[in-house]
């Protein structure tokens, strides 16, 4: 019963592996398969092959064929006989089939191989191959570049904001400065006119005092300059 289920799962696997099937084609070693199968239980294998694939006896194609899966099934049946107590565990069953194959490759090493979690090992080796790279230096470099750009961007933004504020203040001060400069010009013109009037009045009315005072002021002016 369990053998039949295993056969169904084995035969329902995709026959085209992800890697080139030609490179993984089992070479013409079907005599060995046959011997193993013959040693185990010829009736089970022949019955299963006749039930599943009646016309798949062409085993010399050089690629994975349904006959190959039948061979797997035959080996599985052997292992099932040997490890009968674990026959209900399908996952363990599959693991043991691979272990049996390894033992077969080792030319009759009777020590049973240790329990190896093949999917875990494959996953770990794949993870090791993919995650072996160290992007920390690159990430540090990128972080440094990003930090530098951010710092410069913030500095530029701060300067732009500050300059815009200063330009607005200067614009207002220019508006007031124009008014102030007009008023200043008016004051200066007024003062100039008044001073001319005073000078002319004092020069005509009090010429001696005016000249003395002017000389005194000019001398004081030069003394201050010295």
């Amino acid at each position: 019963m369990n053998n039949d289920d295993t056969q169904d799962t084995e035969t329902s696997r995709p026959q085209t592996p992800s890697i080139n099937s030609q490179s993984y084609a089992i070479p013409t070693t079907y005599s060995d398969h046959d011997s193993i199968i013959g040693d185990a239980d010829a009736e089970d294998t022949t019955s299963s092959s006749s039930e599943d694939d009646g016309d798949s006896n062409e085993v010399n194609s050089g690629s994975i064929t349904p006959m190959d899966s039948q061979s797997f099934d035959a080996i599985d049946s052997i292992i099932t006989d040997e490890f009968n107590e674990n026959s209900t565990d399908e996952f363990l069953h599959e693991t043991l089939s691979l272990s049996k194959n390894i033992r077969t490759i080792d030319n009759g090493n009777d020590i049973p191989p240790a329990m190896v979690d093949i999917p875990k090992q494959i996953f770990e080796s794949l993870s090791h191959a993919i995650e072996n790279v160290d992007f920390s230096e690159t990430l540090a470099l990128q972080t440094r570049i990003s930090g530098t750009i951010n710092f410069k961007s913030l500095e530029l933004k701060d300067l732009i904001d500050k300059t815009q504020g200063r330009l607005q203040v200067l614009n207002q001060r220019y508006e007031t400065g124009v008014v102030v400069s007009r008023k200043l010009k008016e004051n200066l013109d007024y003062s100039k006119r008044k001073i001319d009037e005073i000078n002319s009045f004092l020069g005509t009315e009090y010429p001696i005092e005016f000249n003395e005072a002017r000389d005194k002021i000019l001398e004081r002016h030069f003394e201050d300059n010295d």
């Binding site: 993984y24 077969t104 490759i105 080796s125 191959a129 072996n132 992007f135």
Partner: peptide, 29 residues
Amino acid sequence: SDDPLGINKLAVDYDYLMYKIDDYVQSIQ
């Protein structure tokens, strides 16, 4: 005769595939 199911070849090819993946990822790095 020693490798009827091609397991050794599969292992070697798998190791080579892992090596190539590692090498490719290193080149990406």
